[in-house]
Design a protein around this nucleic acid. Structure first.
Lengths: 308, 308
DNA sequence: CCAAATACTTGCCTAAGTCAACTATTTAAT
DNA sequence: ATTAAATAGTTGACTTAGGCAAGTATTTGG
């Protein structure tokens, strides 16, 4: 009499109705801003997707092209974003938020956070954790069913501590296994996040953490590239290039004059990439015993031409 | 550096974006029907809420009253539903689906199920269970944060095996503790669901199972009332009355001529209720030893006046 | 008995979104 | 090399969805 299969459907659909409600509740209260939900979503997309084009927005948010075009036009008119035609393909227009747009974005984000806080304020620590865990489970399970394309790779510019955890774990696993670096490296990885992060980009493949890159403001108009890593199983897909490009693009648009990074001499995959992107070795330290190996530290620098 | 609180917010909001997508995906494909999403939701509400009024729809789905009124009018014109003015309060109009409306509802439901199946088809049994479990967790945690009113009680006319499980567990717990019935009653409870269920109504208080009632088509135009139970912690709130009323209303609108039920003589809370609703004792069996006690079985009948 | 509340309806409006035809550019195919 | 097809985006004309406020009918509460 009890039909398990249908049961699953009913539970799923019940949840859908429930969450329609939750989303409605959350969204109805953003409406003391002059932006519609869709506009908010588009602004989010532009802000958090590096090298964002109108087409990406259209695809990711499932919107009509004309509609997106008009909203972008409106944002442009209000000096919240600006466009930049791609040199490689004049059909592509990259979108960037202006500092005015960023201010608006931050305000919207604050409101969205408040909304979420309102819902969560009555929950205990334990419940919050259970909630987030369940949400992650659902995403993991449903992600592949949802995406129409074979493999979706994307770079986003916000991160959670989950991302940092992945970053540390996967780097440790890789460098310990392949380069035989010892536990002192793991300790270093943890320490490293004491720094003042300016921005971190996370590459995702089918919703899974696939790589990362980060920026630290080292001095006036000088950025330090850090935490560059691509999970070996996602290598050779242009992911590393995409990550570095995201960072360089950001630095250019933020009027940085130089980016530098420290690495060690036996990084066989990263070094050609740095070279390709225009970095040059500017300093070489003496060989030292570090992380259980003999290593030579190198500094690479990239001089940025201004916005043109 | 790692901020746990903000982390939770980010994860929550990420899930919201994700699930907006899921819902969008599910809904975009219902659109080969002539109904909008909101219309579908309204029809669902009418079909599954007993004694449904326009006002309930307005509240439950957070819609504008005028908008709901117009959609109801449209449904009426297309003979999918009909209204019935309440005798107690002429302002109240109860809504019922016609058989034509039911046909349409069933088609929409079929499509909705197919949509869900499409998403779930690639998932293994285990993943499906994890999915449903996570969904239930989220609902349990968020329900109270969402509802604005102090205590929300509602009766719905669909059920999952989760509901049946609750029904059995809670009845067993209660009758064993209070009436000292023995394990043979638990066995009976399980057996009881072998019957051909016509309909089951589940009462929920703040999203939690609070009571139930069921209908079995015993003979031509004769219904048997079964599985009537209200969790003692939710008693004296009119829940029992609401459940029985739902059943009677359904029977009337389905042109039943009589409803009967079997119970035992020491049901102190239920018997007055049956009497109040117009049931009368029509048969009394000899005292027998059953479920570890001496009990007298009784049959109660209610003659239904036709629809008027 | 009258003012306030409730359940619903209606007219009028606007925001949100769709559709199809258009330009500009690139790519692929003969 | 030339041309058709594809891609990225734009624009004008349109539909739908939904909101607001003033209305009716009925009930409730002081």
């Amino acid at each position: 009499m009890i039909n398990v299969e249908n049961d699953c459907r009913l539970a799923f659909r019940k949840f859908n109705r429930f969450y329609t409600d939750v989303l409605g509740f959350l969204n109805e209260h953003i409406y003391d801003s002059p932006f519609s939900l869709t506009e908010t979503r588009i602004l989010f997309e532009i802000y958090n997707t590096s090298g964002c084009m109108a087409k990406d927005i259209q695809q990711n948010l499932n919107l009509d092209g004309g509609y997106v075009s008009r909203i972008i036009k409106k944002f442009e008119k209000e000096k919240m974003i600006y466009k930049q035609k791609s040199k490689e393909d004049a059909r592509n227009h990259y979108l960037f938020v202006t500092s005015h747009g960023e201010k608006i974005y931050k305000e919207l984000e604050k409101k969205a956070n408040q909304q979420v806080d309102n819902i969560m304020e009555n929950l205990g620590q334990e419940q919050q954790q259970k909630l987030v865990a369940s949400m992650n489970t659902i995403q993991d399970i449903l992600f592949s069913s949802l995406k129409r394309t074979e493999e979706s790779i994307s770079v986003r510019s916000y991160y959670t501590s989950e991302d940092l955890k992945n970053m540390i774990e996967q780097q440790w696993e890789f460098y310990n296994r392949v380069h035989k670096w010892d536990e002192s490296f793991l300790a270093y990885l943890h320490e490293t996040f004491e720094a003042e992060i300016e921005r971190i980009w996370i590459a995702e493949s089918n919703g899974q953490f696939a790589g990362s890159i980060g920026l630290v403001n080292a001095a006036e108009k000088v950025g330090q590239l850090r935490w560059f890593f691509v999970n070996p199983s996602f290598q050779n897909k242009g992911l590393g290039t995409q990550l570095i490009k995201s960072l360089i693009q950001y630095c250019k648009h933020s009027n940085y004059e130089r980016i530098f990074l420290w690495t060690v001499s036996d990084m066989e995959t990263a070094r050609p990439l740095y070279k390709k992107m225009g970095f040059e070795i500017t300093e070489e330290k003496a060989e030292v015993f570090m992380w259980g190996r003999q290593l030579i530290e190198e500094r690479w620098d990239l001089e940025l031409q201004t916005k043109s």
